[in-house]
Nucleic acid binder design. Structure first.
Lengths: 109, 109
DNA sequence: TAAACGTGACACCAAAAGGTTTCGTATTTA
DNA sequence: TAAATACGAAACCTTTTGGTGTCACGTTTA
């Protein structure tokens, strides 16, 4: 069974609150209540967001006493990066074409 | 006013149907009904997805006779790439550490 | 000109998303 | 031991999302 990935990484990352959570966890592991302090939102709401991130395997949580400490696992983001790579060439071509055009334009004046 | 970006690029890209649309448009411009042929979904649904992509400035549509031809604009994806760059170092570190570990493990046997 | 085609604009709908509050329970702390 | 803390789970609510079908209208085509 494992952690049924009900949510994929694209959807997990689509929400701004969840992106802020990832950024906080990139700095260091934090307990749920610490994370909650950074938002104008209930603990339950933050917990649900972490649940979604967890289903995308972007975070994990371990219990420590009465706290639950969350930890970042950025690896699944590689899927997004790989997906982007396909489109990168398109906008790079456009940038190159623009650069070429500007250079030509400069030399014409 | 311009095209009020009601949807950001992260959300636009979160839906698998919309990602498929982007991929089709990466190959060449296509009319709405051509795009629709690739999906098991109504034309109206596809049109709405294109609307969302359009609000994220990822596609544009021009009218040609009775057709509406859609075109890809991949530039906004750069925002996603920039966002990813921040996390890239994390998983690269992990990959390097793993590689190092494996190499050590190999030499130990 | 009549019929077929491609689209936009609506109205509508079910399910999912993103929140809330409440309550129970384990763990610390005073 | 009593109170405070941190959390999970459940019930609930509103808005958004992702889809449908229908109708009217301009554009082609026969």
């Amino acid at each position: 069974m494992s952690t049924a990935p009900n949510h994929d990484v694209f959807q997990a990352v689509a929400d701004p609150t969840r992106r802020r959570l990832l950024k906080l966890l990139a700095q260091n592991d934090r307990a749920l209540h610490e994370l909650t302090d950074h938002f104008d939102m209930s603990r339950t709401a933050i917990s649900k967001h972490l649940q979604i991130l967890s289903e995308a395997n972007l975070v994990s949580g371990r219990k420590s006493g009465r706290n639950k400490i969350y930890h970042l696992h950025p690896e699944p983001l590689k899927e997004v990066k790989d997906w982007l790579a396909y489109y990168e060439k398109f906008w790079e071509n456009k940038i190159n074409m623009l650069k070429h055009y500007v250079e030509k334009d400069d030399s014409d004046h």
